[in-house]
């Protein structure tokens, strides 16, 4: 075992973080990296807060997977509206979709709530290039785990349409992964969107 100092792979500046976060952010050159079997720089987005949301701001990390998927065959008993098909537009059975996987520590119901919620209602956001000293919730989910969870999100959206899913033949390719920091406002009843 060896202990090394965490330095930004781009500018070699040491990274100082008080919290245990798997995504290391260099505030000097605004680079983010992870250490999943190597030192890897990752793409990330920071979404801009709505100017109305001033208090209790917090950034929540999501792995956003840009996926290409194709439903070859889907059979259901009862029900006729194909949510996924509708979602892709024009009843088409293939296309590209962003899948959002919460990257912080979640229990199973929170996980489903956040993953399905953001994937179904794709957020529109403008970017900013720093965190503006706003608290970041630590990332604990690896890229690999997020990629594995993409299947669950896709099948859930197909299964939760009316009717009982009986068979689904599909292919799913994750083409790009990116850590997206979404703005939220901490309230008494959990988090409210701060977009």
């Amino acid at each position: 075992m060896k202990v090394v100092q965490i330095k930004c792979p781009r500018c070699q500046q040491p990274i100082n973080s008080k919290v245990k976060d798997l995504a290391f952010y260099c505030s000097h050159c605004r680079t983010m990296h992870v250490r999943d079997g190597g030192v890897n720089v990752i793409d990330f987005d920071i979404a801009e807060f709505n100017p109305g949301a001033q208090q209790d701001r917090v950034y929540m990390p999501f792995w956003r997977l840009f996926t290409n998927f194709n439903i070859n065959q889907s059979k259901s008993a009862g029900g006729a509206i194909y949510k996924l098909g509708k979602f892709l537009g024009g009843g088409s059975n293939s296309g590209n979709v962003f899948i959002y996987i919460p990257a912080w520590e979640t229990n199973v119901s929170e996980f489903k709530h956040w993953a399905i919620g953001l994937t179904e209602a794709q957020p529109m956001y403008s970017l900013r290039n720093d965190f503006n000293n706003i608290e970041r919730t630590p990332t604990v989910v690896t890229r690999e785990e997020a990629t594995q969870m993409a299947d669950f999100v896709i099948v859930t959206m197909e299964a939760e349409k009316p009717g009982t899913l009986q068979y689904l033949d599909y292919s799913l390719n994750v083409q790009d992964t990116r850590l997206v920091y979404m703005p939220y406002v901490r309230g008494q009843n959990g988090f409210a969107p701060g977009l």
């Binding site: 202990v3 100092q5 965490i6 040491p14 100082n16 973080s17 245990k20 976060d21 798997l22």
Partner: peptide
Amino acid sequence: PACGGAIKVNEGEHVLNCQYCGSTLWAE
């Protein structure tokens, strides 16, 4: 590796903090 101070490792954790200089460290 930054300040030479003795560090405390909690088993099972890869991300550590040096209690002296505050550097973020990685246990490989």
